[in-house]
């Protein structure tokens, strides 16, 4: 009977651990939720509205914003940093994609900062990695090196009063990686609750300035095959993202 009791105990444990839906309770960790917001000059972006001006005083609108973030890392003092392995795809027109709960939790405690990869690191950026839309639709064609777009921003700009489309598409070109390893400013925090909420904001205007003022008429609509454009995006993108942090329920 002792043996059967042992078997029963094992099976009960199996039942408890065998289903994905079961939740492990661990008070020493925090679940990380990231919200994604997008602004122009500090105000929430208004899509399909030709109301923005870049640093060169060129009018433009935004119609599409899609991008990957990956390699989110939480840095700690005198301890190894914690990296989350998730790759998340954001589409401003897909509300569900604007909030993401990371699969892995982080230990509670003090952190000195947050970093992440805008786009995909070369080791993550391999053709065929994503088989299902919407991620698969970010593919970057093989004749241009393969892998995936890091980002697609699309809209219109005015040339002599007439609108033209621009496709601000970024990615690894001909094997040259242009992802950005971003150290978020003002991102030290202490988490003492079992939830951590991060709000990652993309300031779109910053893609078009600092250090290089983006000239729509110079780069025009198609830039995927243009190394100069990809390099400019990489350099301008360093200060595009900021983060807001709160622990506990929002």
């Amino acid at each position: 009977m002792k043996a059967s009791g042992f078997v029963m105990a094992v099976l009960v444990i199996s039942l408890i651990t065998g289903c994905e839906e079961n939740i492990k309770v661990d008070t020493a960790t925090a679940e990380v939720t990231m919200l994604f917001t997008h602004s122009v000059d500090g105000n929430k972006v208004q899509l399909d509205n030709l109301i923005y001006k870049n640093a060169l005083n060129q009018d433009y609108s935004i119609k599409t914003i899609k991008y990957f973030i990956s390699g989110v890392r939480f840095h700690r003092l005198d301890q190894p940093s914690v990296e989350l392995n998730d790759i998340h795809f954001v589409d401003i027109r897909d509300t569900e994609s604007l909030s993401y709960v990371f699969e892995q939790k982080i230990p509670q405690g003090a952190y000195t900062g947050i970093s992440f990869v805008y786009g995909l690191s070369p080791e993550d950026n391999t053709s065929g990695r994503f088989t299902q839309p919407p991620e698969s639709l970010m593919e970057w064609p093989e004749p241009m090196g393969g892998g995936y777009h890091y980002m697609k921003i699309e809209g219109e700009y005015l040339v002599n009063g007439s609108p033209s489309f621009f496709n601000f598409h970024a990615g690894m070109l001909d094997g040259v990686p242009y992802e950005i390893h971003i150290d978020l400013p003002n991102s030290a925090f202490t988490v003492s609750d079992n939830t951590l909420h991060l709000t990652l904001n993309m300031e779109i205007q910053n893609w078009f300035q600092n250090p290089t003022d983006w000239d729509f008429e110079y780069f025009r609509g198609a830039i995927m095959g243009n190394h100069e454009a990809q390099k400019t995006i990489q350099e301008n993108g360093v200060d595009v993202f900021t983060v807001g942090i709160s622990d506990g329920a929002l």
Binding site: K63, G155, E156, P163, S164, G221
Partner: peptide
């Protein structure tokens, strides 16, 4: 669609 960037 903005992908039709040669519309002009």
């Amino acid at each position: 669609d903005p992908l039709m960037k040669n519309l002009a």
